[in-house]
């Protein structure tokens, strides 16, 4: 039989249509799932209880100093009273918990429910599905955090009887933004694991293990690694300084460190540096006076962009893996 000549394949430049068609349908569906799901309700109760408890405790403490502090409302977030830690301390682990809970079964859940091939057989690209799920997670997180933010500011106004100043609102809004992206990192991590592992339980465990590693062990590890990589041989101040600098750099690979630093600078206007400060650098500084907002933001700009960049980077990694994934189990 004569071989048919190979038909020249007609080339359509790029892909057909928009990669985002169906995106908002996915976002709407996923957000509806998040907001009505039992999982989310439990977390909401948890976080509202935390907010009420810590803010109440903080109000009790702050009553005595009302009028002396120009940033009294910001103190609501950071003031602690034994035995409770401050609200921001709680946020440091509640936000990752919420983010992981929102995303650990986002992709593999579709496989285990056997809905993945059915959804991808609709006229949408995978891009829309993955980005839709991510955006739905971020929006849900933003919604929850914004609600709590309003609750805290509101109850603080009632409890303390002072209206917030423009600067306080601006600072706490920046803080809200930083918190959302801090959640975004853990959302991306959980989503990445939900793409890699087919079992939702494995993905959840892996996410929590990663979080634990950075929260508990990374700081210790940085303390061990710095002297090895940058040993102090002769005891020169430069050597000691370099070692401390390295340790600080290492700890900043952890999103927790970045977030803590951002939080510190934004909520405590008197904080002038989040790194090492030599006495000579403080020459001429009036200690204890607050910095203007723009300077505080500038101070943690690298940390802030780092949080956002890490979110995007992790999402991109998940995106590439998901695009290459075979639909067959």
């Amino acid at each position: 039989m004569a071989q048919q000549p190979e038909q020249p394949r007609e080339r359509v430049r790029g892909r057909e249509g928009s990669p985002w068609s169906g995106l908002w349908a996915v976002v709407a569906k996923e957000m509806a799932d998040h907001l009505t799901g039992m999982r989310m309700r439990i977390l909401e109760i948890l976080i509202v209880l935390t907010a009420v408890g810590t803010v109440y405790a903080a109000t009790q403490n702050l009553r005595e100093t009302v009028g002396q502090d120009p940033f009294i409302l910001l103190r609501l977030f950071t003031t602690s009273r034994e035995p409770l830690p401050a609200f921001v301390g709680f946020l440091g682990f509640l936000v990752p918990l919420i983010a992981i809970a929102l995303a650990f079964d986002s992709v593999n859940g579709e496989f285990s429910r056997r809905t993945m091939s059915r959804i991808l057989a609709q006229p949408i690209y995978r891009d829309a599905l993955l980005l839709g799920k991510f955006l739905a997670g971020i929006f849900t997180l933003a919604l929850v955090l914004a609600t709590i933010w309003l609750l805290i500011i509101g109850s603080g106004m009632i409890g303390l009887g002072v209206p917030p100043s423009g600067e306080e609102v601006a600072r706490s809004l920046w803080f809200l933004l930083a918190t959302i992206f801090y959640g975004g990192i853990w959302l991306s991590v959980a989503m990445l694991f939900s793409i890699i592992f087919r079992q939702p339980a494995t993905a959840a465990l892996a996410s929590i293990a990663t979080w634990l590693f950075f929260t508990v062990f990374w700081g210790i590890l940085a303390g061990v690694l710095a002297p090895i990589l940058q040993p102090v041989r002769y005891g020169f101040p430069e050597e000691i300084l370099a070692q401390a600098q390295l340790e600080l750099t290492l700890t900043r690979f952890s999103p927790n460190t970045l977030y803590t630093e951002v939080m510190l600078a934004l909520l405590q206007p008197t904080v002038r540096s989040v790194g090492l400060v030599l006495p000579i650098q403080l020459h001429g500084a009036v200690l204890g006076t607050p910095l203007p907002l723009s300077q505080s933001v500038l101070l943690v700009w690298p940390q802030l962009t780092g949080l956002i960049a890490a979110t995007i980077l992790l999402f991109a990694l998940g995106y590439v893996l998901f695009q290459r994934q075979e639909i067959r189990a």
Partner: peptide, 30 residues
């Protein structure tokens, strides 16, 4: 090469998927 309804599923997936109904084995729903 594949042609479905005269279209190339690898190049024009949206057009193909808008015209072709697919029910996977062990179909799952939410």
């Amino acid at each position: 090469s594949v042609r479905v309804l005269g279209l190339d599923p690898a190049r024009q997936p949206l057009s193909v998927k808008a015209r072709v109904g697919y029910m996977p084995d062990e179909v799952g729903f939410y």
